[in-house]
Every structure is written in C-alpha cells, then in structure tokens.
Design a protein around this nucleic acid. Structure first.
Lengths: 153, 153
DNA sequence: TTATTTTAAGACAAAAGACTCTGTAATTAG
DNA sequence: CTAATTACAGAGTCTTTTGTCTTAAAATAA
C-alpha cells in the first residue's frame, strides 16, 4: 500500500467534509455510516486531523467536526502529511540513512523525481477540486453510493 | 513507507547481485554482512525472488544465489512486483473496491497518472543502469560503504 | 438539575509486517 | 563416508497497524 489505510480513510472523510455546508459541524457517527468506516477508528483518525488544525471539533448535540479552512485551501498533501507524516515522501528507496544530494544512493535521483511527482499531484489538488469533479461526473466516495447521495444528507 | 522494508532490502540485494560476475553464486551470508541486513531475514526475501524466478539458488559449498538473467534485463519493477505484489500500483487511493475507468472515484484519474509515473520509472530502470551509475559516481548501497568496496570482494 | 448527544482518551485485541531461531536437505571437499 | 557449507522451511517473537471497547468530558435541551 502506498498510503496507509488510516490515510485513505482520512482522505475520504476530508472529501466528505468538503461537501458539507461551511460552518456546520458534521457528527462522526453519521459520517462513519455513510463512508462505511468503523466509527471508533474514524474518530481516531479525525482526532489526528483535529490535532493538526485541519479540522475543528465541537462536543455535544449539533456538534461534530468541520474543516477549519474552506475546501479549496486544503490540499490532499495536508491530509497525507498529517496522517502518514513527512517521511513518506522523503525516505530513500534503498533505506539508506542520510541519502540526499550530498551522499546519494544510486537510485536517489530517479526516486526523488518520482516522489516529487507524487508530491506535486497531492499539493496541487484541493478537496474542492475533487468535490467539483465528483459532482460534475457523479462519482463516488463509497463502495456503492454516488455523489448525489452525499449531498442529500 | 511507499515500499515495504522487505522490498527495499530486496532492491539492495538485487543491485548487489548485479555487481557480481555472471555465473558465480554469491552466498547470502556474505551479502547480509556487506549490506547490513539480518541474514535470516534476507534469506526469506531472496527465497521469494528465487520462487519468482528472478534468482537461481544453489546449495552447498560455493553455492548461493545469482540472477537468472543479466542485470540489464532485470528492472526494479520485477523486484517490487515480486515482493510487494501487483496491488501496490493498482489500488485505489480512496480504498474503493472496483475503482477503475468504469466506476472511478474522484481521485482516480490523477492517482492513476501518479501510479503510472512510478511504474514507468521502475520499469525503465534496470539493475545494470544503477550499477553503472553507482560505479561511475562511486555511490553506495550501504550506510557507510561505497561501490569500490563491493567490487573488491 | 438531569438526560442526551457528541468528541476525547486510553486500554485492549487482532492482524500484518519485520525479524529470529532451529532444524533439515542438498552439495561439496577431504 | 564424514564433515562442512550452503539454501530451504517452518515455528516463534516483537513491533506496528488496524480496529474495538469502555469511560470521561463537554455541550445542549428539557
């Protein structure tokens, strides 16, 4: 797996939140059912995003979580970084410590290029980009559902 | 980690074998010491490569493992595929089953591009490519050593 | 205040990944 | 034949990831 399962779930949840109205808190319970992710596990993941300042949370009735910034200001990279950490896109492909421009491994140059292409994609794609695409083409965030489903809630 | 640790070790070992003379079997013990990888663990990984036909092995004195094909015919993709499996570069970034051209997720297109760029790099880089680069620039396959080290054995 | 709804936190269990150990089989050298 | 050297096979351990469960804390509503 290129991305951890937590990260994948985090991306799904972030996209889901980007479909909600600004200012409204969305309860994790409903989200977990809609996205078919275990409630407690999703809670943990979203706590990480909250700790990183990507989400705001509120307890009690009408509470839940929401994006702190508008969806077009949140990139996939923000989510991946918060969950899988910065090492994901800096580590040496041969596992050598200190591999870099100064003391590279034979694969360093090509691998750095590859990592950069991943990074570029993640940095240049916002949640809103994908929500817009999802709406226009009526795509899905779950095994069975479609985007109209999500927007109807 | 984009690649599993087993995969990373497998790549190092495959590169090491590509520096050896054709036809000679290299004992895993020496390789594990040179590459600073646990002997038993490396053995397991190389057994996978042997099972996949990438290596040939021979028991007894003067035995060991060697590449079945010349290094310029073995790509990094061959190694990654043998160890991390084909799913690594086909899975959906949002974890949706059946995500593809027919029933894509909102991230499918961009993610497919990203995966392809990884795949292209792996498929278009042979062991010999990297060994050559390693020799020319005297790079390293271990934390401390350099390529001259390896060739001297 | 009391009951309800929600997130937060932490202990716990299960599964997968990373690694170790022990023994066996094949091969060679003496 | 015997001893040494090597890969092979499988069980076992440790760690990380994934997932569950229970309790606490905050907020609201009645």
């Amino acid at each position: 797996m290129l991305l951890s399962k937590s990260c994948v779930y985090g991306l799904r949840a972030a996209l889901f939140l980007a479909t909600r109205k600004d200012g409204e808190y969305t309860p994790i319970k409903g989200m977990s059912e809609k996205l078919e992710i275990s409630f407690h596990f999703l809670t943990k993941i979203l706590q990480q995003l909250t700790a990183e300042g990507i989400l705001k949370s509120y307890k009690g009735p009408n509470g839940g979580v929401k994006l702190t910034k508008p969806g077009h200001e949140v990139t996939l990279m923000d989510i991946v970084l918060a969950i899988d950490g910065p090492k994901l896109l800096t580590e040496c492909a041969l596992g050598l410590p200190g591999c870099g421009l100064k003391n590279p491994c034979p694969l360093h140059d090509k691998w750095a290029e590859t990592r950069d292409s991943i990074r570029d994609m993640l940095e240049n794609t916002s949640l809103t980009d994908l929500v817009r695409k999802g709406i226009e083409e009526n795509l899905r965030l779950t095994d069975d559902g479609d985007f109209e489903d999500l927007l109807r809630i």
